[in-house]
Design a protein around this nucleic acid. Structure first.
Lengths: 218, 218
DNA sequence: TGTACATCAGTGAACGCGCGTTCACTGATGTAC
DNA sequence: TGTACATCAGTGAACGCGCGTTCACTGATGTAC
């Protein structure tokens, strides 16, 4: 890559970073302005157009970048499945919160904009969540813990439940107090609570019998 | 109430209605302007200040109004508990979607602004959700189906799971296609799916044993 | 390697626009006598 | 009941501001010879 291309790439990234920062500092993506983003990135407003046609295009690209955190999480969870651990559920939950800690702004963005004001961003996030559910339910299909579940569709439902819950957990996690000691104890409590919620779900599915599909739903 | 007071009340309501409509038409509360709201309500911008100090104050009042739908739902569910029905879970789910149908904008607003851009609105919604969880978990405590659950805290966790799921269900419900026949079949499918998700949860809690609380969580 | 030209990321002035907010006002409604 | 005054929801002009977008430009980097 030429020197010019490299610098262009840097500016582009600065714009994306600026948009992410501004979107997650108590505001939302659809309330920030093109000029604010450029200013935060250290550029003149007109330079914005060298990289994106408008804020919608930047938003779509931002979702792509931020979604990498979802893929990293899937990867981390996969590495965990193979390990021996006293509680696999708890370990997966810990890996989840570690992912949230790694890139808190990414999670805040995904959760906050999932039902947010920009149609483009909302659609892009919903698509990524769909992929995540696919991946997760396929992983579960391979795990011995779930091999008694015959209907693949049941695992999808389970994965859907899990990701919806996970988003609430992440938001609670991110809103924990700053102060060290308080934070540590509340983090531990939250991990316990969420582990319990997940175990409750798994207990459910382990006793689950797929209902016979009737021809006439009435 | 005097004639003047009545008319003032009408204008005030027109402003609240306008804000709700604008907030749920593909945009969000924090992206709509005071002038837009006044215009939509058929008032001059400056008249806004006769009713609210600023958009934040209107937002807080709007959350109060919209939250009535949550209270109505709790009431409707309570009436259902007593009835004889082939599937109580399915009936509760049906009552839930009926509530969403009754005031779709209210639900769209609550869900969209729960993690939205306005701090004031976000806080007010989180408070209402808290009340809802309290009510729901207390109701569950009284139901025979859950009397074997000893730890009240487990019911709270359950109620938390349920409301988070319910919000996703409502959003899916609201995004179903407009076309009548397609809509009818997909509504039926969604009711079946969500009933199944809920039953899966209840199976879980019916097999649930509260973990012994260790002194040292390590 | 050196030169002459092309490319193009970033600049800065300018535009028209909708915004939130102020202010002095109007005129219908309410109140005191 | 009628009159004189007070209240106050709604009006309309005006303000300064940040916005998105256009345009002609600059000057560093890239390319062809």
């Amino acid at each position: 890559m030429s020197l010019r291309d490299e610098r262009k790439q840097q500016s582009r990234q600065a714009l994306l970073d600026a948009a992410l920062t501004l979107s997650t500092s108590g505001r939302s993506f659809s309330t920030i302005s093109l000029r604010e983003v450029a200013r935060e990135a250290g550029l003149v407003p007109t330079a914005f157009y060298r990289h994106f046609q408008d804020m919608d295009e930047l938003g779509a690209d931002l979702v792509d970048q931020v979604s990498l955190s979802l893929h990293h999480l899937i990867k981390s969870l996969r590495e965990g499945y193979g390990l021996k651990a006293p509680s696999k559920t708890r370990m997966s939950i810990e890996r989840f919160f570690a992912a949230v800690n790694d890139s808190p702004l990414h999670w805040e963005f995904l959760i906050g904009e999932r039902w947010g004001g920009s149609n483009i961003v909302r659609g892009a996030i919903e698509r990524e969540i769909h992929f995540f559910i696919d991946d997760l339910s396929q992983d579960m299909h391979k795990l011995p813990d779930f091999e008694h579940v015959k209907d693949h569709e049941d695992l999808r439902i389970m994965a859907e439940i899990l990701i919806n819950l996970a988003f609430s957990w992440a938001m609670t996690w991110l809103n924990l107090p700053e102060e060290q000691v308080l934070r540590d104890t509340q983090q531990e409590q939250l991990i316990s609570r969420t582990t319990r919620q997940a175990q409750l779900l798994f207990k459910g599915i382990s006793n689950w019998q797929s209902p016979i599909k009737t021809v006439n739903p009435e």
